[in-house]
Amino acid sequence: MDNISNQDQAIELLQELGLKEYEARSFVALARRERGTAKDISETSDVPRTRVYDAIRVLESKGLVETQHSNPKVFRAVTIDEAVNTLQSEYIERTKSLRSALSGLDPTDDERTTDATHEVWSLSGNQGITSRTQQLIEGATEELMLVIGHESIFTDQLADQLRTAGERGVDVIVGAVDEDLHAEIRDALPGAEVFVSGLDWLSRSPLPSDDTEISRLLLADREAILVSSFVESGGDSREHEQGVFGRGFDNGLVAIVRRLMATGLLFRDDPRGSE
């Protein structure tokens, strides 16, 4: 059952990375064996034999398959590491081209936006919120204050980003929702100030009908704020993440968090004191 599940997942992921269905099925069929003919591939992958050759030609052009010109022809997939590296390189090149194309778009009008200090924007989905978190961390020049409401938010990638920020001179202050997470963060970020959050409502609301769980609260340079929470989706309260983002020293949302920080309410026994 696990093999079938892994096969279907591999085919789906290969399609997401740009391969067509028959190409993905043919490659997975070859990855399951040392080598094979078009007949072997067809029998394993359910790809019509006449279409296997077309799929193999594409896979060969991408550097994913090698061909032995015998009679009949024999094919083999490159190693898993080589295949992943090849697809990763192609993905990176495509995203670079996309960045260039998007940056070169002509504006539809002559409007010039101005910095708005009272706007708040909503974000949806873990990937988008994680990306905005990274952007704020990488753009910070003075101080980062991050309160983590759930252990799933503190990933190796986030730890690396915070360490890098600290190495370039940014003050990194991290609050954890409980003692266990506090210990994990402290071990991963020895150069940061790490505390247990004093905001119990991060994980549990005083309102009986409110099951919202705050997942992260980030204040960058005291002028940009990102707050996100887990929302129920299909019975799993942590399946979907939603957030709000605001920027500007006069932004009300930013001001509230900045004042909480100044009064020491964000952390228990905050040595920074009030300002």
Rank of each mutant, 00 (worst) to 15 (best):
residue 1 M to H: 10
residue 4 I to N: 08
residue 14 L to G: 06
residue 22 Y to H: 09
residue 23 E to K: 06
residue 23 E to A: 06
residue 28 V to W: 04
residue 30 L to Q: 03
residue 31 A to S: 14
residue 31 A to C: 09
residue 33 R to S: 13
residue 36 G to H: 06
residue 44 T to M: 07
residue 44 T to L: 05
residue 47 V to L: 01
residue 60 E to D: 04
residue 61 S to D: 02
residue 63 G to V: 04
residue 68 Q to H: 08
residue 69 H to A: 14
residue 75 F to L: 07
residue 76 R to I: 00
residue 77 A to G: 07
residue 78 V to R: 08
residue 79 T to K: 08
residue 83 A to L: 10
residue 85 N to S: 15
residue 85 N to E: 15
residue 86 T to C: 09
residue 93 E to S: 15
residue 93 E to Y: 09
residue 94 R to S: 13
residue 98 L to C: 11
residue 103 S to H: 14
residue 108 T to I: 14
residue 108 T to F: 15
residue 110 D to T: 15
residue 110 D to K: 15
residue 112 R to D: 07
residue 117 T to R: 05
residue 126 N to M: 10
residue 126 N to S: 13
residue 127 Q to C: 09
residue 135 Q to K: 02
residue 136 L to S: 01
residue 136 L to T: 03
residue 136 L to E: 06
residue 145 M to I: 15
residue 151 E to K: 08
residue 160 D to P: 03
residue 164 T to A: 15
residue 184 E to H: 07
residue 192 A to N: 05
residue 198 G to E: 08
residue 204 R to W: 10
residue 207 L to S: 14
residue 212 T to Q: 04
residue 214 I to Y: 00
residue 218 L to F: 11
residue 225 I to G: 12
residue 231 V to K: 15
residue 232 E to C: 15
residue 236 D to V: 02
residue 238 R to I: 02
residue 239 E to W: 04
residue 240 H to F: 01
residue 242 Q to M: 12
residue 244 V to E: 04
residue 252 G to Y: 11
residue 257 V to A: 04
residue 258 R to M: 02
residue 258 R to C: 00
residue 264 G to W: 04
residue 265 L to I: 07
residue 268 R to K: 11
residue 271 P to A: 14
